[in-house]
Design a binder for these strands. Structure first.
Lengths: 358, 358
DNA sequence: GTTAGCAGTCAAAGCATAAGAGTGCTAACA
DNA sequence: TGTTAGCACTCTTATGCTTTGACTGCTAAC
């Protein structure tokens, strides 16, 4: 994107920032006299009108109709966000809530994703979507197959960030000990492989297996089948978890249920969300209004950050709100969550050697 | 409730049923001429007006204002529902969807509850609430403690209807084998006890333990601590899982987001929901309008059924909609879900002896 | 008991008017 | 050249009034 823009005078910048801030708070168009009160007691409203007019001509503001106040454009919000970044005040109450969630952390990856979405949504008062991105890139650390009384068995795969769990049908004729031995064998073979590698290489592996452990092949085949359905399920519904969708109704711009429903529908549509979340986002980033590649969301904004392990995005977290959303508060929440996530990961790695001893 | 009511003439009954049915479909007040079209081509509208007038006097119908059509009262809906019960047409499409959910059933109780709520809500198009009621009355069949690499351990308790799982802190100094032995001991001791019994009797049990297995007491204490937090958590948020809250916006009576939000708030309030779900409901039952003991829901209806094991309600399922909801379809869905649940239970019991052999 | 017919009622829609909030523009001033 | 006062202009919103049409209630006759 070329920087051909004539840069704004100091005063215009200040006026624009005040205007956007005011609109974010009040949700009603900014008037020249409001700016006068907030920022420039020494200037007359007429002067400010001239400035506002200029800002409008440059595309930072727009009017809904002649004789109405101004409203920021996507470009206006973008300016505001850019000049705000790096200066994000952390909201203590929000941080506390999030921290508490991580304290009583769940070990199951699936559950964790839901809790993260819930807690962010609660803290920010906006709908939050979490998309598992590189699920199959997770690194296997330990595999356990646990036969149940119901004729099923539980597969527990510890990875470098949380446990993946699924159930499979178990065969009554196979003794319990075989499941334990099979688990150990799987762990030894695929420790430090990714989940997708395990799924891919398993058939080859089964073929080459020593004849003495051939009896495990049934188990392994079932494990892979179960993992395949799990990943299929995830890719089908896109690994998307949305929470707090209703909070959208709190904001005046979506108090019309029709509008709100339209957006909420998009939130559960894997294809659209995938498009929005396609680019990785190591830092907190914003997609503002027209920058969002989905038609229905063109008057929303999305705050995003990825949870990354070894530079790879495992999950994308996104907060959806009106363009007029409280960027500072939201950035603060997101930043903190991703940070806590990183802590968790450190914890997992710390204990890694411990596990190897067995 | 005394049956002091003068009973309705055949014709009045028929008119009332037609009226309620029509209102459920169209959501607009019933007029005398609508009834004439649907039911009584041979009668004049004037006659029907007389009848409607009588039904209003008896409290089955009411007018929003003079010169408007009639709308059923709670009493009117109640009459409709009572005369409909026992004659519930099963909606094939709905049943199919529910059945598919049960096919790929989850083994975790917590997850299962969420899925049930989702699938019913999707099938009926109304918000659905599931409340775990007698969670601690579940009968323990098998206990497994599984140490993880992260310095935590997973507690898996198989019960007579699903797995309860929670994590606990594990002690690095305790060898893996001890966890396995401790699990077996727990299973042997508490098999066929309820969860609450286990929590209650554990301290006594630890005291009386042979000195040779005294080393397990640390493990057992941690297990109980973890189970306590789990049950505390559940009772705190009341074991309530709501899904599809948004569907409320689909119905014209709650297209006002304020109204909808008010109701949705109640759905996540454990105290209010507990009150609504207080009475056990072995069969599908309805609470209609004024019959609901919560002020905010007095113009809703709730369809309910319990999932019971050995005559005890384990979970209550409730579907919330406007009084004008499609009782037949909803009853069909509920009935079917509870039935499939019962099948699951049968499956679990079938395999029971299998598990004992180890 | 049933019915035709007519008067009466009320909600909803349409229209005109008035009020009010802001801007744009011009002309004058520093 | 930047700033300002002042006034005309625009457009939204609120309000009241009127009309329309859908129903019912009631009466009198069958």
């Amino acid at each position: 994107m070329p920087e051909e823009e004539i840069k704004l005078s100091e005063r215009k910048q200040k006026i624009l920032l005040v205007a956007v801030e005011d609109y974010i708070q009040k949700a009603s168009p900014i008037t020249s006299s409001a700016i006068q009160h907030k920022y420039a007691k020494s200037l007359s409203t007429a002067t400010l009108r001239n400035e506002l007019n200029a800002l409008e001509a440059m595309g930072y503001l727009k009017q809904l109709h002649t004789s109405s106040g101004r409203v920021p454009t996507s470009k206006g919000y973008r300016f505001y966000v850019n000049s705000m970044m790096g200066d994000i005040p952390l909201d203590k109450k929000v941080l506390n809530e999030i921290h508490q969630m991580f304290e009583k952390r769940t070990v199951y990856l699936g559950e964790m994703v839901g809790e993260i979405a819930s807690v962010i949504s609660k803290a920010t008062n906006y709908p939050t979507v979490v998309m598992l991105k590189g699920f199959e890139k997770l690194v296997i650390k330990n595999v356990k197959i646990i036969p149940l009384l119901t004729g099923q068995a539980l597969i527990l795969i510890e990875t470098n960030s949380g446990i993946i769990s699924n159930s499979m049908e178990s065969d009554e004729k196979i003794p319990q000990q075989s499941y334990i031995d099979a688990s150990n064998l799987l762990t030894k073979t695929f420790c430090n492989s990714t989940v997708s590698d395990m799924i891919k290489n398993m058939p080859k592996y089964i073929e080459k297996m020593d004849s003495e452990v051939k009896e495990f092949s049934t188990i392994f085949t079932t494990v892979i089948k179960s993992l395949r359905t799990l990943t299929d399920n995830l890719t089908q519904k896109g690994g998307i978890t949305a929470r707090g969708e209703l909070k959208l109704l709190n904001t005046p711009e979506y108090s019309d249920p029709q509008k709100a429903k339209q957006i909420i529908n998009v939130l559960s549509n894997p294809n659209e969300i995938k498009e929005v979340f396609s680019e990785d986002s190591a830092e907190v980033s914003f997609q503002i209004g027209s920058e969002i590649p989905v038609e229905e969301l063109k008057d929303c904004s999305i705050a995003r950050a990825d949870y990354q392990v070894d530079g790879k995005s495992i999950a994308s977290i996104g907060i959806i709100g009106p363009q007029r959303m409280d960027y500072a508060k939201i950035a603060s929440a997101l930043k903190f969550v991703v940070g806590e996530f990183q802590n968790l990961k450190a914890l997992t790695h710390k204990e890694e050697k411990e596990g190897d001893k067995k």
